[in-house]
Amino acid sequence: MYESPSWLHELWVARDTLWAGFLTSVQCSLLAILLGTLIGLFAGLVLTYGRTWMRAPFRFYVDLIRGTPVFVLVLACFYMAPALGWQISAFQAGVLGLTLFCGSHVAEIVRGALQALPRGQMEASQAIGLTFFQALGYVLLPQALRQILPTWVNSSTEIVKASTLLSVIGVAELLLSTQQIIARTFMTLEFYLFAGFLFFIINYAIELLGRHIEKRVALP
């Protein structure tokens, strides 16, 4: 009599596919978080301290991206880049979309944190003769970044979740890999649950890291 293979057996068979998907998810998320944070930091600084003509393009970027669903953004990057004569892979297009999304959110977080600092901090820095950029680097940003941390962790987990949208443009990240395995094994519930668990692991790691940093830089 035929006995259907157990889930554990199928999991073992699919381990390479799943592992590759997991790594791709981690890779595109981390890349987007890293690049997006850099863009966001810069944009946030310009939005806070830049002159009107400098702020305008960044304001446009932030408002446009924040007003667009990430899904649309990813599709736009995937289809528009080649249309504009820019040959990029699905992976690159996906990372680009997530990065733009992440950057616009971080920009607003950074702006909010900097503007919430008491004006006296800049004045006291200038009063001892620090230049604007010294004041920024030694006094304002160290305080603002502490404020940003919890919100930034939240944005980062949003990016990890949004990375599943890359499955639609054919990036074999964790969700698409899982769907391929399901198409072969028909173990829908089991593998989706397992994928959910793996996403949870990624985000939980980010949260733990955030909490760890928060504790280390906390002020008495």
Partner: peptide, 9 residues
């Protein structure tokens, strides 16, 4: 300053 404005970090 009136509000001291020490750097809290």
């Amino acid at each position: 300053f009136q509000q001291f404005n020490l750097f809290p970090h």
